[in-house]
Amino acid sequence: MLSQAQKKIQFPEQLFSIPLFFMLAMMAFYFSKIEYLQNMGLGLLTISMLIGMLCGNLMPQKMHLTLDSGMSFCKQRLLRIAVAFYGFRLSIQQIQALGVQAFVIDVILIATTMGLAIWIGIKLLKMERETVILIGAGHAICGAAAILATSGIVKAKNNQVAIAVSCIVLFGTIGMFLYPWLYQYIPHGMMTDRAYGIFTGATLHEVAQVVAAGQAMTPQAAEAAIITKLIRVLLLAPFLLILCFWLTRHRADGQSAGTIKPPVFVFGFIVCMLLNSWMTIPQDIHQMIVWLDDLALATAMVALGVSVRIIDLKKAGIKPILLAFVLTVQLMFMGAVLSFM
């Protein structure tokens, strides 16, 4: 527990650091609206982290110490609140509109991607378990948002989160350009626009990447891709609960004693989704909720980026990239088989 003196010291530091992170997040909002960056699939969270990393690696170490308490607040409490309110982007009606096929495909891909990540990353490549889980979650569910939500459960280090996000940016961007190109050459007799949209939404990593890829296809493919992706986002909540249960049974030290409590923000996520499904929220209020949630997530990502040093990423080596490549190929192969059946 912090002493009263320590809390008094932290409070003025937070008054300085948190507004700074908010300002950088607003800068990220501006850049995320630039069409060129949108076409590259660089979403708000990715840009926020890049801005944070740039500032963090340019500022002196003494300033890092001044910002430390504010960084901790943004990466923990603010992030959990933001993940909970992410549920206002989803509704049960969206799932029903697309049907059972997209839901089943998403569940299968999440389960197989996480299983493959753990087997290859931990068993074969001997990587740190936290890094493996973060890379797996980012590929399986919803990119940077899933990595951020998962990081608090596995108690990941800043450089581990940054490595996982970097992998998502690299292979998700490649896929974002590759999918529309493949769409032009696949005979349309062997698949519908809806099927290709489901394939895109079920296998690309970031929501922004799915939107960018969908816009390069037909409106039918884009709609199916986005809704399928949102279903993956919805599955973030049960995934985190299952992860807590799995971590309880598979401690890093081989001991099974003790429990890891399910995070409260997961239940908050579910409650927000149900409220969005059952209540009629005025459009302007709903847009304001989503905007504030984006701001909170971007602020958390900026704080994370500030705390990451480039030298830490270099120490990771080639193994994370290799794992991310295998998971990307697996997603494309299995996603194609399941979507075009």
Rank of each mutant, 00 (worst) to 15 (best):
M279I: 12
A164M: 11
L20W: 01
G175L: 09
Q283E: 15
I133E: 04
V104D: 02
V308A: 15
S91D: 01
M217R: 03
L204D: 02
G175Q: 04
F340D: 04
G41T: 09
M1K: 11
M332G: 05
C55I: 15
Q160V: 03
M114W: 05
R129H: 04
F21V: 03
E35N: 10
I120D: 10
I311A: 14
F85C: 12
I105S: 09
L247E: 09
R129Y: 07
G41Y: 00
Y30N: 03
L67I: 10
F239R: 04
K261Q: 14
L78A: 11
M279F: 13
I118G: 00
I227D: 00
F11L: 13
A257C: 04
P263W: 01
E13R: 14
C55S: 13
A111E: 05
I174P: 06
I227T: 01
I141L: 12
L295G: 11
G143H: 03
A336M: 11
A117S: 13
H139I: 04
S72C: 11
V210I: 07
T328I: 01
S307R: 01
L241F: 12
P12G: 07
H250S: 11
D253I: 08
S72L: 15
V161W: 08
P219W: 00
P219Q: 07
Q6D: 15
P19T: 09
I163S: 14
T192V: 03
P263Y: 03
M53I: 13
W278L: 15
V308M: 10
A300L: 06
L124S: 06
S3L: 05
Q160M: 01
F22R: 05
I231P: 00
M23K: 10
V308G: 04
A224M: 08
Q38S: 08
Y196D: 06
M114D: 09
V290N: 11
I186S: 01
V306E: 03
I118E: 07
L20G: 05
P180Y: 02
G99F: 07
M26G: 14
M341C: 05
M334L: 15
N276C: 03
G152C: 09
F29I: 02
V308Y: 00
F177R: 03
I260W: 08
D293R: 06
Q101W: 03
I47W: 08
I226A: 01
I198E: 03
V326N: 02
C74E: 06
H250F: 14
